[in-house]
Computed example of a mutant assay.
Amino acid sequence: MKDSKPSPGKGGLNAEIQSRIGHQLRAMYDDVVRQGVPDRFAELIRKLDGSGPSHPQINPTGDFDAKNSGRD
Rank of each mutant, 00 (worst) to 15 (best):
M1D: 05
M1S: 14
M1C: 06
M1H: 11
M1K: 14
K2R: 12
D3N: 08
D3Y: 00
D3L: 04
K5H: 05
K5V: 06
P6F: 00
P6K: 08
G9I: 00
G9D: 07
K10V: 00
G11Y: 00
G12S: 02
G12Y: 01
N14S: 14
A15M: 03
A15W: 05
E16Y: 03
E16I: 04
E16K: 09
E16L: 08
I17M: 07
Q18R: 14
Q18V: 10
Q18C: 09
Q18M: 07
S19H: 11
R20C: 03
I21D: 01
G22T: 14
G22E: 14
H23S: 13
Q24V: 02
Q24T: 04
L25D: 03
L25M: 12
L25S: 09
R26P: 00
R26A: 10
R26L: 09
R26E: 13
M28A: 09
M28H: 12
Y29I: 10
Y29C: 10
Y29G: 04
D30M: 09
D31F: 01
V32F: 04
V33H: 02
R34S: 14
R34H: 05
Q35Y: 03
G36D: 02
G36N: 10
G36K: 12
G36I: 02
V37D: 03
V37E: 08
V37P: 01
V37Q: 08
P38W: 07
P38G: 07
P38K: 07
D39G: 11
D39Q: 15
R40Q: 15
F41D: 02
F41V: 13
F41N: 03
A42D: 01
A42V: 03
E43P: 00
E43A: 14
L44R: 06
L44Y: 11
L44E: 13
L44T: 14
I45W: 11
I45V: 11
I45D: 15
I45A: 15
R46A: 09
R46H: 14
K47A: 15
L48W: 01
L48Q: 10
D49P: 04
G50S: 12
G50V: 03
S51M: 08
G52V: 00
P53G: 08
P53N: 11
P53E: 13
S54L: 15
H55M: 10
P56C: 06
P56M: 06
P56E: 01
P56V: 03
Q57N: 04
I58W: 04
N59D: 13
N59Q: 13
N59G: 11
N59T: 01
P60M: 09
P60H: 09
P60V: 11
G62I: 00
G62A: 08
F64S: 13
F64V: 01
F64G: 14
D65F: 08
D65S: 14
D65H: 11
D65T: 06
A66S: 11
K67M: 08
N68Y: 09
S69Q: 12
R71V: 10
R71S: 11
D72Y: 05
